[in-house]
């Protein structure tokens, strides 16, 4: 399996320009007032503290999912199950929150976050274990497992944990003492933002300053070399998966405690794929994940504001991601084939 390596500056630049031009072109084509829509797209995220705060909250979630993905990529493995892992982490957070009764706020929060993290880690870990044990392709197994988990989580929200009094397909609200401290007015921005920044530095230290990180990076770059050095590498088919899934699970539980405060059908959808996009923009480097997540959150926020203020109702998010995925790993941008002499 060819691993995903970092991209050149040129590739990142071309990709970002193309990603920005997608909403611009589509708005120009389909809006009744293209100029206004495009202005909203670019300035919308900064028009109010509510918009800005939500964008930063989204950034925090993208940082965590991006980190999860970058550790998998660094180890030379794929985790395409982020969607399911984040959703399962979130529903675990909801269920635990609804059932820890009298536990104090801080302890409760720690328990809930840990549970979400472990859920994500366990799900991704299964694929890692299958890979190690029987060489089951992790790219496909993470996706299939995630597909199943998404529906099972839908079931939990729609049936056993459904709040029948709500018009939404959702669970009951979690106890208020578990809510994360808010930072910016009515927006969703909360202290998980700082925790996710802290996670970046932890991930950086883990990857670049720890012996395990050293082994993982070498395994991702050249398995032959690791084997030649006499380092047992098989466990590095599992450990990065656990970490990757754990980060997704953590993002899911953060979004419950900090933002949604309940489980709603499909409420974390998109975070899984977004994490991959962010990692790729950041060239798999934990530090660059912060600007990568900011850029991506800005694109998402811009399209959302542009939509609210227009007559349109479609989503760009997938098209933007598609363009990023199409271009970000390109090694060159030659439109014509090599012409040979002779």
């Amino acid at each position: 399996m060819n691993s995903v390596s970092g991209s050149s500056i040129k590739t990142v630049a071309v990709t970002l320009v193309a990603a920005v031009s997608i909403p611009v072109i589509l708005l120009a084509l389909s809006s009744e007032d293209p100029l206004q829509s495009i202005t909203f797209f670019f300035t919308g995220p900064f028009q109010s503290t509510y918009n800005l705060g939500n964008m930063l909250d989204n950034t925090a979630m993208l940082i965590l999912t991006g980190l999860g993905m970058s550790i998998a990529f660094r180890a030379g493995t794929f985790n395409l199950g982020g969607e399911g892992q984040v959703y399962a982490g979130a529903i675990t957070a909801v269920i635990i929150s609804l059932n820890i009764g009298n536990t104090a706020g801080f302890t409760g929060i720690v328990i809930v976050l840990t549970a979400g993290l472990l859920t994500g880690a366990l799900i991704a870990g299964i694929s890692g274990f299958l890979k190690k044990q029987w060489n089951t392709d992790e790219l496909i197994s993470t996706f299939l497992l995630s597909g199943a988990i998404i529906h099972l989580t839908d079931f939990l929200i729609a049936n056993p944990f459904r709040d029948r009094s709500s018009f939404l397909i959702s669970t009951e609200k979690i106890p208020e003492k578990l809510f994360l401290y808010k930072l910016m007015g009515s927006s969703h921005l909360n202290i998980s933002f700082f925790l996710s920044i802290a996670a970046v530095f932890l991930a950086y230290i883990f990857l670049f300053k720890s012996t395990t990180g050293y082994e993982i990076r070498l395994t991702g770059l050249n398995r032959k070399f690791v084997e030649y050095g006499g380092i047992p590498y098989k466990r590095h088919l599992v450990i990065p998966m656990l970490i990757s899934g754990g980060m997704y699970g953590l993002a899911g539980s953060f979004s419950v405690l900090g933002n949604f405060h309940m489980g709603i059908k499909g409420f974390t959808a998109g975070l899984g794929w977004n994490g991959i996009a962010v990692t790729l923009i950041a060239g798999n480097n934990p530090i660059f994940i912060i600007p990568g997540a900011l850029i991506f959150a800005y694109l998402e926020a811009g399209t959302e504001v542009a939509m609210i203020h227009s007559d349109l109702s479609f989503e760009f998010s997938n098209l933007i991601k598609a363009v990023i995925f199409f271009l970000i790993t390109a090694k060159r941008f030659k439109l014509r084939r090599k012409v040979t002499l002779g």
């Binding site: 390596s5 230290i205 300053k209 720890s210 012996t211 395990t212 050293y214 990076r217 070498l218 770059l221 050249n222 070399f225 030649y228 050095g229 006499g230 380092i231």
Partner: peptide, 26 residues
Amino acid sequence: GTSTESSIAENMILLNYKSFSKSGIF
């Protein structure tokens, strides 16, 4: 014999990298 996309230092410590660490951190 080498990990071409790693640094010189990272290639040099392949056999004794653990001796540079304390509790798993370099």
